[in-house]
């Protein structure tokens, strides 16, 4: 067991905000290739702070985060030069933002949005780029004839699916998702979840999914971390944490959901 190396490791990750407010404190874990980690907790518990640190958007105050790069193995992401880190962010990594506005270019066509990462790594054949964009639109269930439309004319669910296509086209190994189904109607959420689940499994993607929706992690995540006041209070196999919660806070979280 455990022959493969972790893809991402967090070691004592702590983020203090000015004034000493705790964003997150002493978070450690290993994420393995193909593994989906869910992070749950109420709003303000530090989920997004942690995600921002993990995805290199924010440097932690203490602790380290390493990613298993294709060229040099496990590497501290904040020891990488900025261009190396930015390259990682648009090739091996992808971020699905809660607000599609943060993850899409609203004034650029769907095809251009999907093609951008290809062009960023040097694709210079229009026909090939377009074909690949079409393939990905199909895979995320966006009709081919919408390829030249701008995402601002898309529904919320379509925008989220376009974000996903835009990321997956570069064949990433790790995807960060911040409330991927937030702000969507229940039926649209369900369809998006099905799609995500299928893609994550079929592509063998590793993912870190932040959400306050336990149904989302139940469906997507292999394992779970429960956060409260910036700290991880419980973690483990997803169904174990949800069905046999040990920490008082987790029990409250799970029972609160059951009662709704």
């Amino acid at each position: 067991m455990g022959v493969s190396e972790p893809l991402l490791t967090a070691d004592g990750v702590t983020k203090l905000y000015p004034g000493g407010r705790v964003g997150c404190r002493d978070v450690s874990f290993n994420l393995y290739p193909g593994e989906v980690l869910g992070i749950v907790g109420e709003s303000g518990s530090g989920k997004s702070t942690l995600l921002n640190c993990l995805s290199a958007k924010m440097e932690p105050t203490a602790g380290s985060i390493s990613f298993n790069t294709r060229t040099s193995g496990l590497t501290d992401i904040f020891q990488l030069s900025e261009p190396e880190r930015r390259l990682l962010m648009r090739t091996d990594w992808g971020i699905v933002h809660q607000n599609p506005r943060d993850g899409l270019r609203m004034g650029v066509s769907a095809g251009g949005n999907v093609g951008e990462r290809l062009m960023a790594i040097g694709a210079r054949h229009y026909g090939n780029i377009r074909q690949e964009a079409l393939d990905w639109l199909t895979r995320v269930e966006i009709a081919e004839d919408r390829i030249d439309d701008r995402p601002r004319d898309f529904s919320g669910g379509m925008q989220q699916r376009l974000q996903i296509a835009r990321i997956l086209v570069s064949n990433p190994r790790l995807v960060f998702m911040d409330e991927p189904t937030g702000g969507l109607d229940v039926s649209v959420q369900a369809r998006l979840l099905d799609l995500l689940r299928g893609l994550v499994r079929s592509l063998g993607l590793a993912a870190v999914v932040v959400t306050h929706d336990l149904a989302v992690v139940r469906l997507l995540a292999d394992r779970l971390m429960v956060m409260k006041d910036g700290e991880v209070v419980e973690s483990g196999l997803t169904d174990q944490v949800l069905d046999d919660p040990h920490h008082p806070y987790t029990q409250l979280l799970v029972s609160a959901v059951l009662q709704v």
Partner: peptide, 22 residues
């Protein structure tokens, strides 16, 4: 400025892509 500094010119190409598609 960062895009120039790191020669990240995919976006420039996106502009030309948009032209062709339109």
């Amino acid at each position: 400025r960062k895009m120039h500094a790191y020669a990240e010119y995919g976006l420039m190409q996106v502009k030309l892509y948009e032209d062709i598609s339109r």
